[in-house]
Design a protein around this nucleic acid. Structure first.
Lengths: 147, 147
DNA sequence: TATTGTTATACTCTATAACTATA
DNA sequence: TATAGTTATAGAGTATAACAATA
């Protein structure tokens, strides 16, 4: 994408919605670049995080907690399994269900991804002081309906 | 996208970068839906805005002020021209150059798009009071490097 | 030789719908 | 009949690289 690091032009840069979308795209792209050397793309990292938070989740549960649809989720879990980062285990109580777990390698990859996320955030949110960053998070959670 | 309006799951919802990306995607999608009845997609609206701000811009100048690459920009201007919203005029001083202008129809479409943007922002930023919204814009401009 | 604009093509990502197995 | 999972396919959106015209 051209001009990724250039400030957005007026009058768009005055519109709150445009600013939100622009900065969102920017950090998403930067994060994607940061984890590319790990062989991961953002959906991989997101799903690793969700599995870690609820080990043994079924695919359907992961879909419910994400913005990833069912068929894409299959592909993401396939990728993770191929790379030895996660594994599906059959559920004896319901043989349709396949519980998903992280491998030790998966946990290491997640840790590396987290470091990349922190580094990216440090870069993008660098212009804000600590207090402003806290305010930012509070407002973003409010907008997201997380509180 | 599934779960578009559901809050993001923890622990992702505590990460500033993830929040920014999530909310950015959410408002971009909502805005795209809002202008779809106008026959416009977000890049169309963005370029209409840029042309309006600098009538007679060349394609290359529009590329410089946006995150849209050259070949996509051609397609966007083609679309706008087909729909009678913009027109290319040859530049007598430099016959390689084609200056782009809005038509009266284009100005009307831009106005409708602006109303959609305002309505979308009202929806997404609804949880914030006026003072919080002002703070949000200030912080976002800082992050974007717009100040 | 550099620059503007364009076209043709390929690629990435995601979504839709049909299918299998189990409940 | 409903649900979990999967696969095959198609689509939108974007980027890459080659090309034509003019400076």
């Amino acid at each position: 994408m051209p001009n990724e690091d250039k400030p957005p032009p007026e009058p768009l840069a005055s519109a709150p919605g445009f600013l939100l979308s622009w900065n969102g795209q920017r950090i998403a792209r930067k994060f994607a670049e940061a984890i590319e050397p790990l062989g991961l793309r953002p959906p991989h990292f997101g799903v690793l995080t969700l599995i870690d938070a609820s080990p043994g989740s079924a695919k359907r549960e992961l879909v419910e907690r994400s913005m990833i649809d069912a068929s894409t989720m299959v592909a993401v879990i396939d990728d993770l399994e191929e790379r030895g980062l996660a594994e599906r285990r059959p559920d004896p109580a319901d043989r349709r269900r396949r519980a998903v777990y992280l491998t030790p390698q998966g946990r290491r990859a997640l840790e590396r991804g987290r470091k990349a996320a922190i580094a990216t955030a440090k870069d993008v949110f660098g212009p804000l002081d600590e207090r402003e960053l806290a305010t930012f998070v509070r407002l973003m959670r409010k907008i997201a309906g997380a509180d």
